[in-house]
Nucleic acid binder design. Sequence first.
RNA 1: CAGCGCGAUAAGCAG
Length: 310
Amino acid sequence: KKFGKMIAYFIDEVGNLERAIDTLLWMSSHGMPADRFTYTRVISACSCKYKLQSAILVFEDMQKAGVAADIFVFTALINACARAEDLDRAMDIFLNMCTKGFAPTNEVYNALIDACDKCRNGNTASEVFEHMCEQGVPRDVFTYTSLISAMGNCGRWEDALSLFHRMVHVEGVTPNIITYSVVISACHKGSQTERALELFDEMLSRGILPNTIVYSSTISACAMSGAWKEALRLFDAMDANHVAKDRIVYNSAISACAKGRQLSKALDIFAGMKAANIEPSEYTYSSLMAACAKVGDWQVAVSLYDDMQS
RNA sequence: CAGCGCGAUAAGCAG
């Protein structure tokens, strides 16, 4: 029990995963294996650090030590696969879990759909979702958010929108800020500017205050149809609404100007970015140079290139 | 010995 607390301490306070794993393995090799709670905690910590191999090693040790696994362990393992973008292994674990007689829960299906999303496999995501519905497992905001994200990531914006509709009006699941960010992002990838803006307004009317991520998704959606004025309006609204601007939202706004052939606006935003002490990235320079290319201003492109090198 | 507590799932940028 005390070693278990020590492992939790290594993970939560010290952030030393290696030590936590060593202690866990030491415990089982000395005939006093940790309980399933501790195993789950360690597997989850491996997942957070994208260490799928370690997660599997810990799970194998758990089985060797004769500690009975439960649905929480399997959920954490599937999540580790999702983070490592290994859908095949996620499926293996899922099937293995079913064979052992565990009925998949909402969380297990959600983690599996997330794995499909991370692996850009929209078809499998849809199949898993259908299976979930057939089994009568409840769908919640996590389910729909992951599934809509998976649709968006493989260009299926119509499906993303119809799932959003089904979520809200058929299943009565309330969308949150993350749901709006994925459905707006799906519109962005499908160049559906109008729909993205409608969703943004709908979100406001629900009383959800947009954060940096939702602004950047919506600004990117504006960029796709040359709606740079709308993009800049949103970008400026961030200050009025006291929403912090990060590098990504600056990049989104610069890209919107670039696609709308507004080089001087793009340069203004770039200046603002530097004034705010935000480091430009390769995305920043790439968008700025694209803007130069659009208007044929090679001199500014060269000066940006020099600026980038220094 | 008993009770209690402790563990799992989702989002944004360029060429």
